[in-house]
Design a protein around this nucleic acid. Sequence first.
DNA 1: CTTACAACACTTGTATACAAGTTTGTGAGC
DNA 2: GCTCACAAACTTGTATACAAGTGTTGTAAG
Lengths: 261, 261
Amino acid sequence: MNPSTANIEEAILSAILAGRINPGTRLGEQKLADLFGVSRTRVREAMMRLETRGIVQVSARRGWFVIEPSAEEAREAFQTRRVIETGLLQTLRRVPPEVVRSLKEHVAFEREAIDAGDVQSRACLLGDFHIHLADALGNRLLTEIIRDLTARTTLISMLYQPTEKAEESSHDHGDIVAALETGDIETAARLMDEHIAKVEAGLDLTAKPDPLAGLRELLTPSTFAGAPPSIPSPNPPLGRAPSGRRPAAPRAHRHSSRKED
Amino acid sequence: MNPSTANIEEAILSAILAGRINPGTRLGEQKLADLFGVSRTRVREAMMRLETRGIVQVSARRGWFVIEPSAEEAREAFQTRRVIETGLLQTLRRVPPEVVRSLKEHVAFEREAIDAGDVQSRACLLGDFHIHLADALGNRLLTEIIRDLTARTTLISMLYQPTEKAEESSHDHGDIVAALETGDIETAARLMDEHIAKVEAGLDLTAKPDPLAGLRELLTPSTFAGAPPSIPSPNPPLGRAPSGRRPAAPRAHRHSSRKED
DNA sequence: CTTACAACACTTGTATACAAGTTTGTGAGC
DNA sequence: GCTCACAAACTTGTATACAAGTGTTGTAAG
């Protein structure tokens, strides 16, 4: 089968929603072209579409990178989600019983994944809850918008969230569904607002994302004996670059390895 | 200067927001490339970006067309706007005085354009009101979303609106601003909901958009003697001024479906 | 040992050529 | 006169070649 640009787009987006692709990841055109068995042209199309959806960014002649939202952009994304999702709930006059059932089922799946410790499924399901909720309105346009926003906030969480609070989120989801079941839309909207605000508050937006995070992650887990004694450690809050942020290069600048022994 | 893809994108989008480009207009790659003095590649990029934003659609090997939303899609677009814009207002806790002043000024401009009979400015300003309002939050992401949605509903209005009710819309805008000025956010949100609902209700979504509208429009205004006796005109008269300017794509070339006779 | 510099490999940006499909125009046959 | 078949013109789809930068690395001077 010959993957279309939509396939490529979708593959990347769902990988992001599932948390398999980190923010800042470089997505080389040629690599992707080889991977999907098409020419660069198609990959480029997909990347440009993803760029207009706010998922990736291009750095001129350096490559395509999964976005690394700044603190300001993170705030905007969460505010946008609060605006849209509370507005959505308030528009929902009544929730059909089968939708409630479907949502309850979804929350049950969340719990399952959490209990099983399945990190991948867990992240995917937690984001999917909001998409499913949007589906309740049956508005494809709105669902699409929320889907893109969810991808964005998922990436933000990966950048700034010190610890995942999956259980708490799932609990919130359960409360929202419960309110919907009793028909108390107003409460559901309030709970949603608080839920999103809570997720945002759980982030550490003051901490500049570590430009070496990718490398560090690649190196630390391999705890075999031959590894260097200690990676310098997640540094204390270092001063932020004053003028503009550079799209973090995935590879280290140069290893001025002054290791002290 | 060499127009970038963003320039092309923006040129087309603002032409749509200003009502200079009708839904269904064909946008040929080569024509646009010649017009902007670039190769097809750049035009293609711009079109694909606009496609992901829901502004144009491609019909395989036939061309790019400005979207002609179906009745169902129209409903979705208006519902989405209601959800987002009421949500936005409710998020707005207080409105800074200078924003209120700016909005009042904007409404004054609307009135001016309406009184002057400037159809082009009028349509542009009426849509721009909502974009300005979104600006009040200072959330660029949300503003961008609303901008795209406004483009979409502008096109829908061109397709389905039998008569423009510019004065009424501008009046509604004034009421909303007045409510904001007194700090009565709740009322502002309600007014906005009613306003958008009213605009939607003013459409005739039951009427299938005339696939020959473009052609008919091009032919009817020329009321010279030698013209064919009468264009069949299956629909009640649509009174759109010819405004003999030529759009970006000179040919309004429609895919003619089967005609009833 | 550090630093400056130049060459190199690699990536995206853009145009162009050709393939594939659609619409339009033309003429033969009835 | 009308319909149908077929060819020509035109349009988008896709790949490829080359141009233009960017970051890295090797090397030599201080």
